[in-house]
Design a protein around this nucleic acid. Structure first.
Lengths: 347, 347
DNA sequence: TCCTATAAATGGAACGTTCCAATAAATCAA
DNA sequence: TTGATTTATTGGAACGTTCCATTTATAGGA
């Protein structure tokens, strides 16, 4: 079937009776060749089943048109949305992003980054895996390849990051709970080695301060950022002598876990215990009860990150400013007033 | 910062005081070089911040170590799981798969495939976009690059496919509903241009035949394969003179939509209307009510597809056998007995 | 007619690797 | 010592492009 040796530009040249240079020009859509010649060449290209060898081309050309996207957890619908946002703008720019998953594993991340660099990517958009070492991107920066962090950032890095306003989102959500009359508040899930965690917890504490919630009435339970983690958090919290009546969760997955654990105890989120999520994934709206959550416009952040990347490539720089995305609290059913309080502003 | 011109094998050679051939050998881990020399070279590699240029290498070597994974909808958690399964086996084989999303768009798919081919992928695992034209893979096959379809297949194609036993799954699920006493059955969602749809609908009809459900009592409503589509399907079905009492849905997303639409009408899935999904995504178990669904072992299929791919590459063939994955029905709360029937085998 | 200006097409030298054939160095048997 | 053998190392020719500097063809002006 397949002509064994793959066709090259020279085969086309022979077929069309022109020189390889002419073929190359046609391939690049140069206006210098006579239209009839171009047609002839294009026909030959079709006939021999030619496929362009970008590797060979990149040997001469400055840089490629592929952009790598390294994501820490493809399973999280949240990241899929981020990817979709990026793709929208890359597609318009005629770039095909290649996505790779690190499964939250720094070693795998190292491999993936190496592979992408070897492939000669023009830029890298990364949501770094937990536990990424500070030096992980040193070599990439040294090579002059632009990198943008999306959603997550590294503690001390000078790489530009595109992320939502985590602190403000958490602050908004916490205020909302306090206004509903809750006085014993919890922050569930996540772990302190993530910058995002520190930001969200920071917002939570900021609101607690502002409303003079005593330290003794703040419960902070670290845990996995998954349903399972959320379930564990609730169990730990309710086992305390003076348990909280409301919780802000590190993300929606944790919140779903909390709702599940509540139901398992015969309690209902919203009426017996208030829960607020973070990220506002598509599922939040449809959950039962519908989950109050901090919306972060994930796809929008993806688009933003892609734009920044494109601009960095164009201006051949490796630096750019951080972008903080606006957030908003979407109030739904899961965050009802405190039953024992008269302060709640519920109807 | 970065030494502008990127380091090549020759720079390393100069630095280490050896020839480029020696460096190349070290890079490939050849046992032919003296250990001390290797150490010296490796040090030089580190010093100059070298990054391997796979494009240049592929110019000489037969083929690359990258495998492309082209997926029609990254947003569907189902496909993320498929990707995760594949990655597991590729990682073990030292291969980094590059994922690209086609967003169910054949034109985008064309671009993506072209880009991957140009990049010199060793093989392609594809879940084709709806509406893929029969000839879309002709050129790729002609180029001798192995292709495997995952989850979906094309009507007449000779490309090997790895997919679950859709017919059997649908048949099992339908039998389950009939055994629960349901006699007026519906099949919700999907559209007939998909092979998967035909298979699943085929299983549904097969079970209907086997249990002598009259044609008049079978309702088939095509629709989008999303929550929204599922909601629309239910509305259409309940508007009929003799509405069904149970539905097998094309996939879980449709099923979730049906459950939502039921609730909107004050009905509860499981007690008022039975609904069964397909794919058994992680969410199914945690939904309320928990969704009865056909489990397809997505990650397992991903692994299988990856193995087939690896084998094809190794034996440099472009052909392989189809693999049909086993399915099983996971019964949960959403598929209760028909209230008006005495035949139900419920406790 | 010849000269110049413009348009179209071309040869050849890179680009950074691999790999073969060849060389150089070290070891061994006689 | 010499030649044969093994062990390490090396130069050079590919690989498939791009792009610069040329060449060749075409047209226009005198």
């Amino acid at each position: 079937m397949a002509s064994r040796a793959k066709a090259t530009i020279l085969d086309i040249a022979r077929e069309a009776g022109v020189s390889k240079s002419t073929v190359s020009l046609v391939l690049q859509g140069s206006g210098l060749i006579r239209p009839e010649t171009a047609v002839k060449v294009r026909k030959a290209i079709e006939d021999v089943g030619y496929v362009y060898n970008r590797g060979a081309a990149n040997l001469r050309k400055a840089h490629s048109n592929v952009i790598g996207m390294v994501i820490n957890d493809l399973t999280n619908p949240f990241f899929a949305e981020l990817a979709v946002g990026m793709e929208r703008v890359f597609q318009a720019a005629g770039v095909v992003p290649f996505i790779a998953n690190t499964a939250e594993n720094p070693v795998r991340q190292e491999e993936v980054l190496k592979s992408m660099m070897e492939q000669g990517v023009a830029g890298l958009i990364v949501s770094p895996a937990r536990g990424t070492t500070p030096g992980a991107f040193r070599r990439i920066e040294a090579a002059g390849v632009p990198v943008v962090f999306a959603m997550r950032r590294l503690p001390e890095s000078r790489i530009p990051a595109i992320a939502p306003d985590n602190r403000r989102g958490a602050c908004l959500a916490t205020e909302h709970l306090i206004r509903k009359g809750h006085r014993r508040l919890a922050f569930f899930g996540g772990s302190s080695d993530l910058v995002v965690y520190q930001e969200r917890l920071g917002g939570f504490l900021e609101a607690c301060e502002a409303f003079a919630i005593p330290v003794a009435d703040r419960t902070i339970v670290e845990g996995q950022t998954s349903r399972k983690g959320g379930m564990a958090c609730l169990d730990t919290a309710l086992a305390m002598p003076e348990p909280p009546t409301a919780a802000l969760c590190f993300n929606d997955a944790v919140a779903f876990g909390v709702i599940l654990a509540l139901r398992k105890r015969g309690l209902e989120a919203g009426t017996d215990f208030a829960v607020v999520g973070f990220d506002d994934v598509a599922e939040a709206e449809h959950y039962s009860p519908a989950l109050t959550s901090v919306a972060v416009d994930t796809a929008g952040l993806g688009e933003r990150a892609a734009h920044v990347m494109l601009k960095m490539i164009q201006s051949r720089t490796t630096r750019a400013e951080d972008h903080i995305g606006a957030v908003s609290l979407v109030v739904r059913e899961s965050s009802g007033p405190d039953r024992n309080s008269q302060v709640g502003d519920a109807a």
